[in-house]
Lab assay of single mutants.
Amino acid sequence: MTFKLIINGKTLKGETTTEAVDAATAEKVFKQYFNDNGIDGEWTYDDATKTFTITE
């Protein structure tokens, strides 16, 4: 399955996707992406659209 990440950061904005077997696996991938890029904020997940959103 394809999961999308929408980034609404102070310095970084955009979208990316990842292929994962489930939302929990995608969450781990995206959290690592947050850490690697110094993004910290509030994030949500919409199961209907398989979209994670992080807002700094």
Rank of each mutant, 00 (worst) to 15 (best):
F52T: 00
T51K: 02
E27K: 07
Q32V: 07
L5W: 03
V29R: 09
Y33H: 05
L12G: 12
D36W: 10
W43I: 09
E56A: 08
T55P: 01
K31H: 06
Q32H: 07
G41K: 04
F30I: 04
T25V: 06
F3T: 01
F34D: 01
A48G: 07
T25N: 07
V29D: 04
D40W: 14
Q32P: 01
A26H: 00
T17E: 07
D36M: 11
I54C: 06
Y45T: 00
G41L: 07
I54F: 15
E15R: 06
M1R: 07
G41S: 04
T51N: 01
A24W: 09
T44D: 07
G38D: 09
W43E: 01
G9R: 06
T2Y: 08
G41T: 06
K4E: 02
D40N: 13
D22M: 02
F3P: 01
I39F: 14
A48F: 09
E19T: 14
F30Y: 02
A24R: 09
A24E: 11
N35P: 05
T51P: 00
T18D: 01
Q32W: 05
F52G: 00
G41Y: 15
N35T: 13
K50L: 12
A26D: 00
D22V: 02
A23I: 06
K50P: 00
D22A: 02
T11A: 09
G41P: 04
E19I: 14
D36H: 09
I54L: 12
D47C: 05
E19W: 15
Y33W: 15
Y45M: 00
L12T: 09
G9M: 15
T11G: 08
W43G: 00
E15P: 06
N8V: 13
E15M: 09
G38L: 11
G38W: 13
T55L: 06
G9K: 10
K50E: 02
T2G: 03
D22T: 04
G38S: 09
D40H: 13
G38N: 11
G14N: 08
A26W: 02
A26M: 02
E56P: 11
A48E: 11
T16S: 08
Y33C: 11
Q32A: 12
E15W: 14
D46M: 03
E15H: 08
T18W: 11
D46H: 05
A23Q: 08
N8D: 08
V21R: 11
I39M: 10
K10Q: 10
I39R: 04
D47H: 08
D22E: 03
G14M: 14
I7W: 12
T2F: 08
M1N: 09
T17R: 07
I6N: 03
E56Q: 11
K31V: 08
F34Y: 13
F3Y: 12
I54D: 00
T49M: 05
E56Y: 12
K13S: 11
I39G: 06
K28S: 08
K31E: 03
G14K: 13
M1K: 09
V29Y: 14
T16D: 04
L5R: 00
A24D: 07
T18S: 03
G14L: 15
T51S: 04
I39C: 10
I39D: 04
A48T: 11
Y33P: 02
T25H: 14
E27F: 15
D36G: 11
F34G: 15
T17V: 07
T53K: 04
T55S: 06
I7A: 02
D22Y: 02
K28M: 10
V29H: 11
V21Q: 10
E27L: 15
N37T: 13
T11V: 11
T53S: 04
M1Q: 10
L5P: 01
E27V: 05
A23T: 05
E42G: 05
K10S: 10
W43R: 00
N8T: 07
W43K: 00
F30G: 00
K10T: 12
N35W: 13
Y33M: 13
A48Q: 10
T44P: 00
F30L: 03
G9W: 13
Y45D: 00
I54M: 12
G9T: 15
T53P: 00
K31Q: 08
D36F: 12
G41F: 15
M1S: 09
D40R: 13
T49W: 03
E42Q: 10
T53Q: 04
T18Q: 04
W43F: 09
F52W: 05
A48R: 10
I6S: 03
D47Q: 09
G38Q: 11
T49Y: 03
D46Q: 03
E15D: 05
N37S: 13
E15Q: 09
A20T: 04
D46K: 02
G41D: 03
A24M: 09
D46V: 03
K28E: 08
F34W: 12
A23Y: 13
T53E: 04
L12A: 08
T16E: 06
Y45A: 00
T55D: 05
E42H: 12
